[in-house]
């Protein structure tokens, strides 16, 4: 008698659609040896599933978090850069239009651009501080994290506003960019305070 191969036995655990499955089952009914072999296979799989879970020796979260933060800052810088260009263009356009008819129309875009420029200055100040290389105490780290989270939320709102109608978005843009600058200011403060502790 030719017994079932391991490939056939392994395949018998599938839904039973394998070619030759019917013949294999017939053999199985008649052959105690192959039935024992299939039982061993089931037991082996059960033992594999029951192996104790292995745990990492080190905490990799700090490394993940630092990469996430670094990438966020890169994206922010890119985003701010692009928006800066768009704003500069819209300011130029607004000024051109305003000289023709509406003297007050150019005010908001100009303010937006000022706020964006301020935002970029703060952003590069934070880059120079290089927060990832510093160890903050628990409370300071908590505050920094909260600020980073809020900046991320503002950035998401900014992206949404960028997609709306140009006529209606300027006041929203200005409000969000101002909020962003406020948060960045606070973040610089947090890191600067920490830096002065290090200096002492």
């Amino acid at each position: 008698m030719i017994h079932l191969s391991m490939e056939t036995l392994v395949g018998l655990r599938e839904a039973g659609m394998e070619p030759g499955a019917a013949a294999a089952r017939e053999h199985l009914d008649a052959c105690a040896l192959c039935r024992a072999e299939l039982e061993r296979l089931h037991q082996r799989v059960a033992r594999l599933k029951a192996l104790p879970p292995l745990r990492p020796a080190r905490d990799r979260w700090p490394a993940v978090r630092d990469r996430v933060r670094a990438e966020r800052r890169r994206q922010r810088a890119r985003f701010a850069g692009l928006s800066g260009l768009a704003a500069a263009a819209s300011v130029a356009l607004a000024l051109a239009v305003s000289t023709l008819r509406q003297p007050e129309a150019g005010l908001t875009p100009a303010k937006i651009e000022q706020t964006m420029a301020r935002s970029q200055v703060l952003e590069s100040a934070i880059d120079r501080i290089d927060p990832e290389s510093r160890v903050l105490d628990g409370r300071t780290a908590g505050i920094a994290q909260e600020l980073e989270d809020r900046i991320a939320r503002v950035d998401r709102e900014l992206e949404m506003v960028e997609l709306t109608e140009p006529q209606s978005r300027d006041s929203d843009l200005l409000r969000l960019w101002r909020e962003r600058v406020g948060l960045l200011d606070a973040l610089v403060d947090v890191h600067a305070t920490r830096a002065s502790y290090v200096g002492l």
Binding site: P53, L54, V68, R72, R156
Partner: peptide, 25 residues
């Protein structure tokens, strides 16, 4: 999804065990 770090960390803490186990195997 809002980018909140504490929530991202909660995901890490919840699944680091099974992810490491799979990777280690």
């Amino acid at each position: 999804r809002q980018g909140e770090e504490a929530a991202l960390e909660a995901l890490y803490r919840a699944f680091e065990g099974p992810v490491y186990n799979l990777a280690r195997r």
